[in-house]
């Protein structure tokens, strides 16, 4: 595993402490920053493998830090920390280059698992198919909103492929949003006109009476 340190950015002292202590077990050096400004300063001075970044901070907030970092340090992997339920922010952050996101409240094991998983591969390895797999995993667990974030990330990474769009359609349908689902399925078919899953889903969607059962995920 990499010897470069992990940077934890959170305005809450107790979170910083808890995060650094839980990551100590991975035997990776951990540094902390209490604000966006401090984080940028530290990033300018040294090299970091990974940054855990809280989106909600006074002053320079996490999103702004992320925006700057993604331009200046494209190699840095960023995991953002969002509040439970703030899915829109998570999607935006993922599009800005974050590799993953943590929802508060979380526990030590969750953090360690995620950090370990991300550190295992180089940044480039976090590609379309990885997020697609993550999305399917979350769909199977019933966490549609989390799955949606990964699928959005996948689309962002490779807009030319239909699978992630089809997943987004299925997620939208599960959340009761037919119109949005139809748009996603159509988008998937414009990428690959013979993509069976999207075709079947679209056909079922157009059928009367409408039946939400039997979404084809891939």
């Amino acid at each position: 595993m990499s010897s470069r340190p992990i940077l934890i950015v959170d305005d809450e002292k107790n979170i910083r402490l808890a995060l650094s202590m839980s990551l100590e077990k991975l035997e990776i050096p951990v540094e902390t920053a209490a604000s966006g400004e401090e984080a940028l300063e530290k990033l300018g001075q040294g090299e970091y493998e990974l940054m855990l970044l809280d989106l909600r901070m006074p002053g320079l907030d996490g999103m702004e830090v992320l925006r700057r970092v993604s331009q200046q340090l494209p190699e840095l992997k960023v995991i953002i920390i969002t509040a439970y339920g703030s899915i829109d922010l998570a999607v935006e952050a993922m599009k800005l280059g974050a590799v993953d996101f943590l929802q508060k409240p979380f526990d030590a094991n969750q953090v360690r698992e995620m950090v370990r998983r991300i550190l295992e591969k180089p940044r480039e390895a976090h590609g379309y198919w990885d997020y697609l797999a993550l999305a399917k995993e979350r769909i199977n667990e019933g966490y549609f909103d989390v799955a949606g974030v990964y699928a959005q990330k996948a689309v962002f990474l490779n807009p030319g492929r239909p699978e992630a769009l089809n997943l987004l359609g299925g997620i939208a349908e599960s959340q009761g949003n037919r119109r949005e689902a139809e748009e996603y399925y159509r988008a998937a078919l414009t990428r690959y006109p013979h993509y069976t899953a999207a075709k079947l889903n679209l056909e079922r969607l157009a059928r009367s009476p409408y039946n939400r059962e039997g979404i084809v995920w891939d």
């Binding site: 809450e12 107790n14 839980s22 979380f106």
Partner: peptide
């Protein structure tokens, strides 16, 4: 409940780590 989450996360993690 939003505001509760941050302290709760730190308490939760602190207790977990202590137990470990």
């Amino acid at each position: 409940s939003h505001e509760l989450r941050t302290p709760l996360t730190s308490v939760s993690m602190a207790v977990d780590l202590l137990l470990e």
